[in-house]
Design a protein around this nucleic acid. Structure first.
Length: 140
DNA sequence: GCCAACGTTGGC
DNA sequence: GCCAACGTTGGC
């Protein structure tokens, strides 16, 4: 399956477990351990070349960087049943200015973001419009 | 650290 | 198939 334009995502991580800096240090990270069906469906829909915001949850509460999907459609190596999905990501760029959850909530055009609507979903879809708005907000 | 929101599980 | 109990996530 191919797609003309890259899709956009937002992936949450608790920085004390796995932070943006950890990903940069590793060079490539496996996004595994997801045990939510909706998040899994998002993971399974990802393709190489898609881009994702890296969001720090619990602490920070902000988008800190952008990563690209480097390997798609793999099964979660931490899962023995084989039914959970994972991808590999590489850091692409660190945002000049992190975009905080508060800033996202304060922007009416972002009120419909899956991030806002489903606060507990750890892998969210982002529309191209939302992506561009946040990229603009992240410019220094 | 607390707790609300939400997803999952299991008894009936 | 319903729903109460339970576990987890994530904002505050």
């Amino acid at each position: 399956m191919t797609r003309a334009a890259p899709a956009y995502w937002l992936m949450k991580s608790e920085p004390f477990k796995y932070s943006w800096d950890d990903l940069v240090a590793e060079g490539e990270g496996t996004w595994d351990g997801v045990r939510n069906y909706q998040a899994r469906n998002n993971l399974a829909a990802m393709q190489v070349g898609d881009e994702a915001f890296f969001y720090h949850s619990r602490e920070g509460l902000e988008i800190v960087g952008i990563c690209t999907i480097s390997v798609a459609g793999i099964s979660d190596p931490t899962d023995e049943t084989g039914k959970w999905a994972a991808v590999k990501v590489k850091p692409k760029e660190k945002l000049a200015r992190p975009v905080t959850l508060a800033a996202i909530k304060a922007e009416p055009r972002l009120a419909e973001m899956q991030l806002i609507k489903q606060s507990r979903l750890s892998v969210c879809g982002v529309t191209a419009e939302e992506w561009n708005i946040i990229r603009t907000m992240a410019e220094g």
